[in-house]
């Protein structure tokens, strides 16, 4: 009999606890909520953490959803249940502005925070590559021009493309199509490279080869770095901050004559870099305590300045004049809200 009562008692306990945990809780919804790009994520989280420590507000919650999903969430409306800001590794598209407008999100501000370089790197145990965008196109496109004809990519060794390149099999690890890094790489390297070879057809420009020479290695850049370490004959495509962190083991290839160094990217000499942004709703400046201060912290000299803490993490800062203009725009934006 004792056992049966124990069981009934336990069931009662379970149901009471389930009720209590459902009720009795306040709605906590006043912290800053940020969504968006996984490229901006490592930078936005550093700012969020600093902001949480130094201000009287809670630490903002930052989600890594990707730029596209970020805009979908951001543009879903105004109010407590929508994000205050979204990070993006590209500028907002017209269709997204339209989506925002349709949902009543009319007044948004764009903040450009700096640049991210995309590098083509290999192990330090091998020779450093000096490439042009056209050569990269020839090595990685699905179809390439040979004697004026578009044919399936016949190249298997870098030496076949140019006598100046190392005698190495072509093996390149890169991100999958879902990644923003892949989009930017296609746009900045493959398309410009293909165009210099006289190709105009969009599909030929944007299609990577699928015969195992270009290997989709997943979204995790650390994994690509590890693979390069293990295989000195391979090259890999990833963000500059991973090169910056692993500079003792891997080296970036020069593209169009310039090394992917911090200075070359900042000066715009290194061709493969893209601006990073975040977007904020003006209506939320009143709604979410601390949002204006967070934006100000992000654009402050200590964060995104030339020697700011984000440059230590591999973010390439904006040039002086452009940054000053950005700081001014943010100040105007904050002033206009009150």
């Amino acid at each position: 009999m004792g056992r049966t009562h124990k069981f009934v008692r336990m069931l009662k306990l379970v149901s009471v606890a389930a009720l209590v945990s459902g009720a009795n809780q306040a709605w906590a919804g006043d912290e800053i909520r940020i969504v968006g790009s996984s490229t901006v994520f490592p930078f936005a989280t550093v700012v969020a953490e600093r902001f949480g420590r130094t201000s009287s507000f809670g630490t903002p919650v930052v989600e890594s959803t990707g730029s596209g999903s970020g805009f979908r969430l951001f543009c879903s409306g105004v109010g407590d249940d929508t994000p205050d800001a979204t990070n993006s590794s590209r500028a907002i598209m017209a269709s997204e502005i339209e989506l925002c407008r349709a949902n009543g999100v009319t007044d948004i501000v764009e903040v450009k925070i700096g640049f991210d370089g995309i590098v083509l790197a290999n192990s330090r145990r091998a020779e450093q590559f000096e490439l042009t965008t056209a050569q990269i196109f020839l090595a990685l496109a699905k179809t390439v021009p040979v004697d004026g004809q578009l044919v399936a990519n016949p190249f298997t060794n870098w030496r076949q493309i140019s006598a100046n390149l190392p005698d190495q099999e072509i093996v390149v690890f890169g991100p999958p199509p879902t990644s923003g890094t892949r989009d930017s790489f296609v746009e900045l390297v493959m398309e410009t490279g293909g165009q210099t070879l006289g190709i105009t057809d969009g599909t030929s420009l944007a299609t990577m080869r699928e015969d195992g020479r270009f290997v989709e290695a997943g979204e995790n850049d650390n994994l690509i770095v590890q693979k390069l370490n293990a295989d000195p004959d391979a090259l890999g495509i990833f963000g500059f901050s991973f090169l910056d962190q692993n500079g003792d083991k891997i080296q970036g290839s020069a593209i169009n004559g310039f090394d992917p160094s911090f200075e070359n990217i900042a000066d715009g000499l290194y061709a493969v870099s893209r601006p990073l942004y975040f977007y904020v709703k003006r209506a939320h400046l009143d709604l979410t305590p601390g949002l204006g201060d967070y934006v100000a912290e992000f654009i402050s000299d200590t964060a995104t300045g030339d020697e700011g803490y984000l440059s230590d993490r591999g973010l390439i800062p904006l040039a002086g004049a452009e940054r000053a203009a950005m700081v001014g725009a943010v100040a105007d934006f904050r002033a206009a809200a009150f």
Partner: peptide
């Protein structure tokens, strides 16, 4: 549902991030 996020402050209740 947004739980893959950078959250510094440990949650103090079931409705906290």
């Amino acid at each position: 549902i947004g739980m893959v996020a950078f959250i510094v402050d440990p949650p103090s209740g079931v409705l906290d991030p």
